[in-house]
Design a protein around this nucleic acid. Structure first.
Lengths: 231, 231
DNA sequence: AGTTAAATATCGTGC
DNA sequence: GCACGATGTTTAACT
């Protein structure tokens, strides 16, 4: 990765045509040849950039360009499209190169696990008088996210997803089939809980007598925060 | 703007919970306090970031953290939300600060003007035998993008948009009303030309006897390039 | 079907 | 109404 801080202007053509007037900017050249032009504000998005795969060519300025103070011209050409970024570099304030190696990348922690945790703590969201039996209730084909009992003591099996798709309904259906064979539990109702429930999933669930529960992540987290403030 | 290249790991919580395993990364701290974590690949998007308004706090590592090689802990807290980014910094390979000043920002060049220019140069796209009368043909309510004549000498008014919406059809309709009052021009046909024509706009245009023309920006530019190569 | 990568546009929101 | 920010998401492409 090469970091250059320089006075520069730039021109981009591709999906649209645009230009960057003369200013001091950070130019990042990544190992894959991609280029980012950042100002000292805005957002995480560069003012302009070229995504890989692309090739960076460093050229001498034309006499005309040189007469206006341009010391280098960088052209970045995308390999698969006509996207092209041309940077005219004047004074260079900083220039350094660094070996960064391969990055393992961002790991998203389980939102689903968090939802399960919070719903277990706020089990009354299933309805008044509900109580938690246990999380990850084991069955022969895997654990059910939550097993609870309603106000009259009947069993309720809950499947939790971040995005409620048809697959989740099928999964819950299989669990319900199994659980309802257990004379100590049956009858077991099903609740399909998700941050967002797709219309098809809702139709399928309703058709099978499974209730749908939309989980408001922020609201649930808010309640959790309030709870935690009590300690 | 501060540029730091360091071995680090990070944790983000906000809309989701995620973490970045230990690796060497570029950390950009912008003048507004926002922070960007970049790897040496990927795209223009940082691995993780915090957008302004936010505050960066530099803390001493806890004994536990220090024992794993952490030399600094940066916490970046968003002002308006619970978004929080925590960076554990181990070895620092580079650290520099730069004054960049205010950036004038990206200027998007007129795409619509360019389309008009190219269509005027390739007026036969309207149909065989068409000829250009003039661009920006003046009327009492503003200039029509292009006025042309077809193979038999009848007038054709063209409205050009990047995205052909209902508004554009309405605009062209008003021009046609006016132009058709001119005995020297009438009858004047209308052509609605755009890179992309929305279905509703197409229906409305067709209903009013206005022809629709989808402009292929790349193809038109290609022809222009070929033309320019002749010189 | 599941997985990864791109998005320089559009939307919504805040000023 | 306008400008800016966010999409840490959505979709498209691809394997």
């Amino acid at each position: 990765m090469r970091l250059v801080v320089a006075d520069c202007s730039a021109r981009y053509s591709g999906r649209l045509t645009a230009h960057l007037p003369f200013a001091t900017r950070l130019i990042v050249v990544k190992a894959d040849g991609s280029v980012l032009l950042h100002s000292d504000g805005g957002s995480y998005k560069p003012l302009n950039w070229m995504s890989p795969p692309c090739t960076l060519l460093t050229l001498e300025p034309s006499p005309e360009q040189a007469s206006t103070g341009v010391t280098q011209v960088w052209t970045v050409q995308h390999h698969k499209s006509d996207d092209r970024l041309e940077i005219e570099i004047h004074a260079v304030h900083h220039d350094s190169a660094h070996e960064l190696g391969v990055d393992p990348g961002l790991v998203k922690d389980g939102v689903e696990a968090h939802l399960q945790e919070m719903l277990a703590a706020q089990i009354e969201l299933l309805g008044d008088g509900h109580s938690l039996v246990r999380r990850e209730y084991p069955t022969a084909i895997g654990p059910v996210d939550i097993l609870a009992r309603d106000a009259v003591g009947a069993s309720v099996a809950v499947e939790i997803k971040r995005r409620g798709d048809i697959d989740g309904v099928e999964q819950l259906t299989r669990y319900l089939d199994l659980l309802n064979r257990d004379p100590l539990l049956r009858p077991v109702r099903g609740v399909f809980a998700a941050q967002e429930i797709k219309p098809q999933a809702r139709v399928l669930a309703t058709d099978r007598g499974i209730a749908c529960l939309v989980l408001d992540y922020d609201a649930m987290r808010g309640v959790d925060d309030v709870d935690s403030r009590l300690f």
